[in-house]
């Protein structure tokens, strides 16, 4: 008794191969769609905005006249914002990940926390803006400041950093921890000398991608009421400020068509910044890949 009828298999082979080709085409088309949209977007932005990119664009404040407009205040504000977001979110995020993966015992409460951190990553950024407005701007009376916005942004990207760090920490083989414990190392020594060195590429990659999200995020800043036009540089963490995405948002709202081109110039700068940060992440990932 044979179950496979080889003649029937031969007669159906062509049909199977056709199906294979069709699906290959469908998935290739799906990929191409994204690429085409991206290309059109890039083309439009670059043709519109490249005329405005010059040294003056970086060294002048915003202006009523499109030709004189620049991003000096906005880029300074974005950098200040990162100076708050990077340390706060990385310390809290990596700390949480270490606690959950290395110290926390497995019980229902901790499982509940782990699941909800992933859920938190899906909360819309406007909601985080409202949270920041209520807690940091109003309750702690930080007002419309770099600190308030920075803390809000930190909360926004915290779940992304936690999840990425957790995955990086989990990828460290357990045998390495065992080897360390078996020599009388404490948990902290094991984390510091074995787990973190092995997981730092993954942690950094995730954190940089999260930071690049924070630098391009607009909604929470709108909710916090960050001004769009500032004619002075921020002078401290409690100073008010504006950021690149806010500035771009303001220019695109204006009726004069010339300002739309200025906005495109701002977008080019913002995208170059994002691309730069992402390439650092890729560089770190490639350099330290496959260490074990």
């Amino acid at each position: 008794m044979r179950y496979i009828n080889h003649e029937e298999v031969a007669s159906k082979t062509k049909k199977r191969l056709t199906k294979n080709t069709i699906f290959k085409g469908v998935f290739a088309a799906a990929t191409t769609f994204g690429l085409i949209v991206l290309t059109i977007l890039l083309y439009r932005i670059i043709t519109q905005g490249s005329g405005y990119i010059s040294l003056d664009f970086f060294t002048s404040f915003a202006s009523r006249i499109p030709e004189n407009s620049g991003i000096k205040a906005a880029i300074a504000g974005s950098i200040y914002l990162m100076l708050v977001v990077a340390p706060v979110s990385m310390f809290l995020g990596v700390g949480t990940a270490i606690y959950l993966e290395e110290y926390a015992t497995k019980n229902r409460f901790n499982t509940f926390i782990k699941i909800n951190i992933s859920n938190l990553a899906g909360v819309p950024s406007v909601v985080f803006g409202l949270l920041g407005l209520t807690i940091f701007a109003r309750f702690f009376d930080l007002g419309i400041s770099i600190l308030a916005a920075g803390l809000t942004m930190s909360l926004l990207i915290l779940p992304i950093i936690i999840v990425a760090s957790q995955e990086a920490i989990r990828a460290v083989p357990n045998e390495l921890r065992e080897a360390s414990f078996a020599m009388g190392a404490t948990k902290w020594q094991t984390i510091l000398r074995v787990v973190l060195p092995a997981s730092i590429p993954g942690i950094l990659t995730g954190s940089i991608l999260a930071l690049s999200r924070a630098i391009g995020e607009t909604a929470p800043l709108v909710v916090l009421g960050i001004p769009t036009i500032l004619m002075f540089m921020p002078d401290g963490l409690l100073s008010t400020f504006t950021a690149l995405p806010m500035q771009i948002f303001d220019w695109t709202k204006r009726p004069q068509v010339e300002f739309h081109d200025v906005a495109a110039g701002g977008i080019i700068v913002l995208m170059a910044l994002l691309l730069f940060m992402n390439s650092i992440a890729v560089f770190i990932r490639n350099k330290y890949q496959n260490r074990y």
């Binding site: 080897a179 360390s180 020599m183 009388g184 404490t186 060195p197």
Partner: peptide
Amino acid sequence: VEELRTKVGMVFQKPNPFPK
């Protein structure tokens, strides 16, 4: 345990050197 494990070393089934 840290004190005990300094006196009692262990070699595992699968070689597990650190990636160092």
